[in-house]
Amino acid sequence: MILKGGCLCGAVRYEAHRRPKVSGFCHCRDCQRATGTGHCCYMIFSRDDVVFTGALRAYSMTGGSGMETVRYACEICSSQIFGSGPPEDDRWTVYAGTLDEPSCFKPDIAVMTRCRADWDHLAWDFAEHDGMPG
């Protein structure tokens, strides 16, 4: 299975060559602010499983965990495409809204639900975690 996606203007494209390790919703304040809504829809892949093309801009900050987090966006349209942890992290967190076929997103977890807004409750039957699962 190959998952494909990209930014709003089409200048950045990606292909994921394996299924995500985890897919879900993150309700942390960073994700709320980055997406402008109640949660981020994400898929976590091994870095070796995803190929990106196009010019990206990176924004680095300290996340809610106290660790470095980096978000990558298209240099032209500013669409956020994916994120990562510190440079030694072996994962890419690809944002599900960038998929060419959004129905390929199959969430299986919700994290940081302690930050979830009262109006942002989803009707899913999967594991929910107050913080990050350990």
Rank of each mutant, 00 (worst) to 15 (best):
F52L: 14
T69D: 07
S78G: 07
C41S: 04
T35D: 14
V70D: 12
S46R: 05
I44N: 10
H39G: 02
Y59R: 12
G97F: 06
G97D: 07
S84P: 09
I81E: 14
C77G: 11
G24K: 00
C74E: 14
C28T: 05
V70G: 13
R29Q: 04
G66A: 10
D90G: 01
A34I: 10
G64W: 07
G97W: 06
M67N: 13
F82P: 13
K106H: 09
P107Q: 01
F25Q: 01
V22P: 00
S103I: 13
R91H: 08
Y72T: 13
E88S: 15
Y59M: 15
P107K: 04
S65A: 10
I109H: 01
I76M: 11
D108C: 02
S65H: 14
K106S: 06
A73G: 15
G83Y: 01
C77P: 07
Y42F: 11
T35F: 03
F45P: 05
L56M: 06
I109G: 00
A34D: 05
C77R: 13
T37M: 08
S65T: 13
T53F: 03
G85N: 15
P107W: 01
C40S: 10
M67W: 15
S46Y: 04
S60G: 05
A110R: 00
K21T: 09
I109P: 00
C104E: 09
C74I: 15
T98H: 10
G36A: 09
A110C: 01
G63V: 04
M61A: 11
V51Q: 04
G85I: 08
Y72N: 12
M112E: 04
F52T: 09
F52E: 13
D100N: 08
P107E: 04
E75Q: 09
R71S: 06
G97M: 11
G66W: 13
Y42V: 04
T62W: 12
A34G: 09
S79W: 04
E88A: 05
A58Y: 12
C26T: 01
P86R: 11
V94F: 07
C40D: 05
D90E: 02
E88V: 12
Y95L: 14
D30G: 10
E68M: 13
S23I: 03
D90K: 01
G24P: 00
F82E: 03
T69F: 13
C77S: 12
H39C: 03
P87K: 08
K106A: 10
V111F: 00
C26E: 00
T113S: 01
F45K: 02
G97E: 06
F45T: 06
S84I: 09
R116C: 15
R57T: 13
C28R: 02
Q80D: 07
T93A: 05
I109L: 00
D48K: 14
S46D: 06
H27V: 13
S23T: 03
M61Q: 15
